[in-house]
Every structure is written in C-alpha cells, then in structure tokens.
Design a protein around this nucleic acid. Sequence first.
DNA 1: CGCGTTTTCAACAAGGTGTTGACTCTCCCG
DNA 2: CGGGAGAGTCAACACCTTGTTGAAAACGCG
Lengths: 210, 210
Amino acid sequence: MAQRGRRTRRVSGDERQDAILVTAEALLGERAFDDISIEELARGAGISRPTFYFYFSSKDEVLLALLDRVITEVEHRVGDLPRDFESDPAGAWTRSIGMFVEVFVAHRGVATAAIAARARNDEVRALWSKSMQSWVDFSSDVIRSEQARGAAPEATDAHDLAVSLNLMNERVITAVLNQETPAIAESRALDVLSTIWIRSIYGSANPGRG
Amino acid sequence: MAQRGRRTRRVSGDERQDAILVTAEALLGERAFDDISIEELARGAGISRPTFYFYFSSKDEVLLALLDRVITEVEHRVGDLPRDFESDPAGAWTRSIGMFVEVFVAHRGVATAAIAARARNDEVRALWSKSMQSWVDFSSDVIRSEQARGAAPEATDAHDLAVSLNLMNERVITAVLNQETPAIAESRALDVLSTIWIRSIYGSANPGRG
DNA sequence: CGCGTTTTCAACAAGGTGTTGACTCTCCCG
DNA sequence: CGGGAGAGTCAACACCTTGTTGAAAACGCG
C-alpha cells in the first residue's frame, strides 16, 4: 500500500512527497478537501503544479496516502484493544468506542475528507471500508462471544448489529465534529453511544406494554 | 421555498423548469450528482446551457428544488405518523422507522445526492437538517412520553438518544442503498434498526456480568 | 402594429485538471 | 574526469466546466 504514485525513490524526492502530505494535512485542518487546489498543495511543498504530478497522479492519491497511514494505525490499535468484557462489559465497550472516537478526533481532517471522497472515489471507498471492516470484525467477534457465554441474547445477528452500531458511531461522530444540526454535545457523545451499544447488545427485545 | 431561481413565472417557462427537474431526477437515478454536467441538464430539457441559468442559478439549486419537494412530503408524513405506542410499542416504532426507510428508497437519488452535497453546500445542509430535525423531534417527543408513562427508563436524555438513532438510520440506509461494504442485507435492515431502537429506548443499562 | 417583458443563446472569461517535451541536476561508471 | 542515464523540474498547452454578458428573437397586450 506504500509506494503510491512514485516509480522509484532515492534521495531528496521523498522529502518533497512528504512535504506535499504535510501541506495537505495542514490545509485539511482549516478547510474542505474540495476547496484545496493542486496548485496550493504544490506551492506549499515548494514545487510547481506540474511537478506535483511527478509525486502523485491526482489530488485523491494524496488523500489516499494520508488515509493509508490512518488505516495502518487503526488496525494496530484494534489489535491492541482489551477484551476484558467478562469482568466489566460496560467499561470495556466504552473503552473500545472511545478508541474509535479518538481516531476520528485525532485525524479529523483526513477522516471527514475521506468520508466525503468515498462517494466518488473507488480507492478511497475500498480503503475506508477496510478500516470499518476491522472495527466491525472486532465488534461482532466480541458480541458473538458475549452471546456464547450467555450474557447477551442471541436473537439478533451479531454481524448485522455490529455493522449498524459502527455505522452509527461513524455518523454521530462526524456530526459532532462538523457541528451539524441535529447533533449532540461532544462531551455527551461517548456516553450516549456506549449506552446504545450496551442496551442493543445485552438488552431484551420486549418493551413493557401499556 | 418555492420560487427558487426564477424571477417571475407566466406561461411556458414553467414547463422548462420542470423539464430540468425531471431530467435531473432521471439522471440521478443512473449516476452521481457530480458526474452530471449543467450541459446535460440543459440538453435534457431541450435548452442551451446559458438558458439553464435563466431557470436555476447553479446545479446545486436544482438539487435544492428536488430536495424541497422531498422535505415537504416528509413533514407531511411525519405529522400523519401513528402514535399508538402504548398498545404496541415495538410495532409502532417499526412502522415509524419503516416510513423513514420508505422515503429514502422512494427518493434514493435525491437523498444520496443531498447527503453528499451537504458537505459543501450550506443551503442543502440547512434543508436536510430541517428534515432530520422533524424526525428527531417526533422521536424525542415519543421517547419522552414513553419515559413519562414509565415504560422507558429516564436515565438517558431523550433528545440525545433520538439524534443518535436517527443518524444511525440515515447512515445504515444509505449504506444499504449504495451497497457499501460493510453493510447489511436490505431485507434485514428494518428488523435490525427496530431492534436497536427498541432496546436503546426501553432497555436497561446493566448488562449481566461474568 | 409596436413596445416592453420574457426567453434564448453565441461568445467570452475564469479557473481547475492533466499532459508534453525539453531542460537541469546529480551521480555513477567507464 | 567526462559523458550518459535517470531523477526532478516546469513553461506552455489542451481541455473541460462553470458562470457572465450583451444582443437578438418571441411573445403578449394595449
């Protein structure tokens, strides 16, 4: 997944490529991906626009490279996630969801740009979906083991539940980060999301009737 | 909210404006909004590109007009939503969520285009958020009344819950419609979403410990 | 008819993307 | 150490899309 765009690499070209990436991440912190031109990326890295194309074949490739780093970090962190669900299910889920929140907050610009670019770019979509998949796999594994030990009802398919809850997290967190309306307060997000996860995974499906 | 783009209206100009809208909706059925040029919209309506600007000031205005219709329909349908939650909470919620699903499916092209355009266009964002807001208001009203009658625990803020669950619906349904990965089967969507809603609203927050 | 308003579009301007071809620089090998 | 093979660079070009302008055609009504 590394080695995007460039043919070979020897001396100082790397620095240029890096400079483009650094410029892109900085600009993404202050405005939307669509509002950043290749000209700006090039100028920020101290090169001309045509030279930009020597390093990346398009603006989307830059986003892809940025996203690539985030994905790598995510897969690492998912692997390190504690699985102490038996002793403290609520706490364990909250910590897992907290990690999700942390990644979004830490790479806010890249995450929101990638989510928007996903609609038009196949490679971005594939890469993002890989990341979501690793979260979904983690969640559904845990849900299944909670069902196996009798702590959670088996009525609902673990995979469907995991997908829906992870998509909820993605959407709620982006709404919070972008300060959309409607959204919830940033300070309440983790609490609300955890509550929904826990009730959905462990709760019964029979509300009290009138 | 009607009367977008045009100064006055008298005779046959309306048909042209309508033809643009019809063309847009048809094209949105087969590809993404970004991949449709104003040239195509104009040709589809039998006019030249500059003439398009007589009717709409931009491509986004066309989407806005399309979305406007959908929003109107939504507000109408939310008002007509049954509130028979006391006798059959699960069924009532499922029917309400089903309406949400129906609207997305019926206006699939407009909905997905609007969601994508929301990121860059303030007016689209405002209009979409108005629609979400009417769903959120409905949901939180019902949640609060369920809490008041003692059927649902009051531990969680009704508004925060309503926002999160509605955002989940938005995201899960678009994932299903776009056949994303990960997603769930279209036939399972309503069932899974209802389950999560019901457990989140009525369930307790205390999972069984190991 | 004749005059104002509506409607139309050729032509232009601006701004972005991606490509070409030639030039420089570096460094390594003969 | 001199000459080539890349790597790296960019002016200039071609192209597409959006949005504007100004003048002309069509229409309705007195």
